[in-house]
């Protein structure tokens, strides 16, 4: 156990765990989107869990900090708030918020953060950026709504935990990054049918179970069309 001071409060946290987990364990909420408790090496990608630590000249993401004895941590300065708000607004500017039609409505982490930080679900500061992705995921059981996905990576993480080499993957790069799957449909069917942990873990209902009627038909030879990013006027 390590003694640390968070917002003036003294707590004792497990050594091996991250600062974020330590705080969460003690009921101190730090906003986070890309972190799961069992992660050995969290990606640190959503940039929400910023805290200030005495002796460091810049805010740091708490999911990547190991608690050190007598660390003094601040979770709510105006500086942090500003960063977290921007992070949230940026994410929202790239997220299609049609809440009424979304299965996550009312239990959505984004809605919760919006309330907490007092920003709009459709931020005025930034224009909306569409996620124009023509293709659906080539998966017999899963369906993905790219315009909802916030690229938290939780689905890829649980998939990797299950299979070592995951069936879900990030593809492409930068603003075009998507979550997808590629390969042999039959094999996916066999592996995923009993798992579907990714659907469970997705915080914004971007990954869904395919409606029975919407299932991709498996061609006789078991090889579906490849979902290859379109690079040319030739198909």
């Amino acid at each position: 156990m390590v003694r640390i001071v968070v917002d003036g409060r003294e707590i004792f946290v497990d050594e091996g765990k991250s600062l974020l987990q330590g705080c969460l364990d003690h009921g101190i909420f730090i906003p986070n989107l890309c972190y799961l408790e069992d992660m050995e090496d969290p990606p640190g990608s959503c940039r929400m869990c910023f805290v200030e630590i005495e002796g460091m000249n810049q805010p740091v993401v708490s999911c990547k900090v190991e608690p050190k004895p007598d660390m003094v941590v601040n979770t709510s300065s105006s500086e942090l708030l500003r960063l977290q708000r921007t992070s949230l607004r940026l994410l929202l500017s790239n997220h299609e918020a049609k809440c009424k039609a979304c299965p996550s409505n009312r239990r959505c982490i984004l809605q919760e953060l919006v309330k907490r930080f007092g920003v709009r679900i459709r931020p005025r500061r930034y224009d909306h950026i569409d996620r124009e992705v023509a293709e659906d995921i080539e998966h017999p059981l899963l369906q993905i709504v790219h315009s909802r996905c916030i690229l938290c990576g939780k689905c890829v993480h649980v998939c990797q935990r299950q299979y070592g080499s995951p069936i879900l993957t990030y593809a492409r790069r930068g603003i075009d990054t998507i979550i997808t799957a590629f390969g042999d449909v039959e094999a996916m069917y066999a592996l995923c049918e009993t798992c579907l942990a990714c659907v469970e873990v997705c915080p914004v209902s971007a990954l869904l179970l395919r409606e029975p009627s919407g299932a991709i038909e498996i061609p006789a030879d078991g090889s579906p069309e490849a979902t290859i990013p379109c690079g040319g006027a030739t198909p």
Partner: peptide, 21 residues
């Protein structure tokens, strides 16, 4: 830089596109 952003973290992935726009 916007085209070369890896897309991992929010600020760079989305923020640079707003700058560029």
């Amino acid at each position: 830089t916007q085209k070369e952003s890896c897309g991992k973290c929010t600020f760079c992935r989305i923020g640079t596109l707003h700058l560029l726009n």
